[in-house]
Design a protein around this nucleic acid. Sequence first.
RNA 1: GGUCCGUUCGUCUAGCCAGGUCAGGACGCCAGGUUUUCAUCCUGGUAACACGGGUUCAAAUCCCGUACGGACUACCA
Length: 509
Amino acid sequence: MNQKNVRVRFAPSPTGPLHIGGVRTALYNYLFARKNNGTFILRIEDTDQTRFVAGAEKYILDAFRWCGISFDEGVEKGGKYGPYRQSERKEIYKDYARKLVENGRAYYAFDTAEELTSLRRRYEADKNTFVYNAFERKRLNNSLVLDEEETQRRLNSGVPYVIRFKMPEDELIRMEDIIRGDVVVNSRVLDDKILFKSDGMPTYHLANVVDDHLMEITHVIRGEEWLPSMPLHVLLYEAFGWKAPEFAHLPLLLKPDGKGKLSKRDGDKMGFPVFPLEWTDPKTGEKSRGYKEDGYFPEAFVNMLALLGWNPGDDRELFSLDELTKEFSLDRVGKSGARFDPEKAKWFNHQYMLKKSNHELATLFLPVLNEKGIMADIDFVEQVVGLVKDRAYFVRDLWLQSDFFFVAPDTFDPKAVKKRWKAESYDQIMELKELLAGLTDFSSENIESVVKQWINEKGYGMGMVMNAFRLVIVGALKGPHLFDIVALIGQEETLRRLEIGLHELGRKE
RNA sequence: GGUCCGUUCGUCUAGCCAGGUCAGGACGCCAGGUUUUCAUCCUGGUAACACGGGUUCAAAUCCCGUACGGACUACCA
């Protein structure tokens, strides 16, 4: 069926940490590649030397490792289409840019950045916009107006120059986007984009087209912010005489307040992380939260992200990466931007919490306990986790739900005391203590039947006794099945807590 | 300003391409139930086709316009 081996790439710029929008783009590329038995490539687009940020590339690699997204080719991994870092492919681009000059589709321009800036300012003052296009280029400083000799002289003299694409004056560009369908733009409204910068580096436009062609990319799946560049890219393929890949422009991830696309700078101010991993800015030292550090499971993070813009067409919402791989299709990617809901993200994490085995959860919980100075046996922790995991959203919540398993309460919730420690409570708990002291079978089931029988025989109020009992054991009116708690902490500890409780709470008149 | 893209419950969305269902699900929220407590859980409820025209027996669905939102408009990606 597949005429050609699918090859897709994710091509981030190492200018800082990758935010969740970028992760989602990569995820969709990954899923598309896997679904079609294709190849997924990681290419680093570091053609802007001024924006290079130390550690960013490593961050990107680490983030994908955490997510479980793997590459077949690329930086770190290698492959026969390398190198995969554009700065290491520098030499390639100039020749291609020159080819376009030779075939008349591009030209040299000698205007300085300062000249252009002041030109723009002048236009702006007259409420106009300066555009370096077919109408303006005739009166600017480039090889289209200079004669060949002068152009050659300047080139040889070493003055800075750029290479610009010669945008057709008036041509209808018809394009097809997998997600959006037909898109038509007139070249008249486009400008002569710089392809090759005066610093010897290509711009994104040139580099991405050349590399996608050289790396035999079949599908370009990227964010919607690139949609306005699609005509230029399509024209570039045509100018080179190359077959263009198919394009799919993904809807944007929006800020939760509904204003604009999510950006790196939104940081923590929204109250949730925008990055997969924590990031410390190497210049300012400023820290940004990450999903990992906030306690999200990578499976939950990926699942949540996948559903932001894609859906399986039915009611299912929980998908492992493998399941997503089987189900994913670009046909089912929506067109409109998605704002994501931190509440739903929590819910996803809770779902994965429930799926985890007690052993796995206990292993994750143990370090949290150690931090609190608690050394507990893994078997014991597993049992505790089994009792409380359905009330937790994150591993760290486990502590709040289970602290009383590890340490006896040192205070008793005053509101609960007022409500549940009544005049008869002291004597009843005293009696209960004697009862429990006499038990040889301290299993949850046995304690429950013995205690309930005793309550019934004495004609005590079930709620009266049980709430007082819970108050003394837990310190508050919370927690799982009380008989499970006492069975787990054991007879000795239970009696000790009853003793302490009686002493602390005393007889109420 | 210009170009392009978009618009179904508060949020994520199904339904649209191949017009005909009380417009479905999930999160949240509210209520009830289960429970000795809290939470979970279960049941129920709340709530949407941006607006205006047109085509048609029939429009969320097709067409046009308007409004609103967004992206882009660098020798950044």
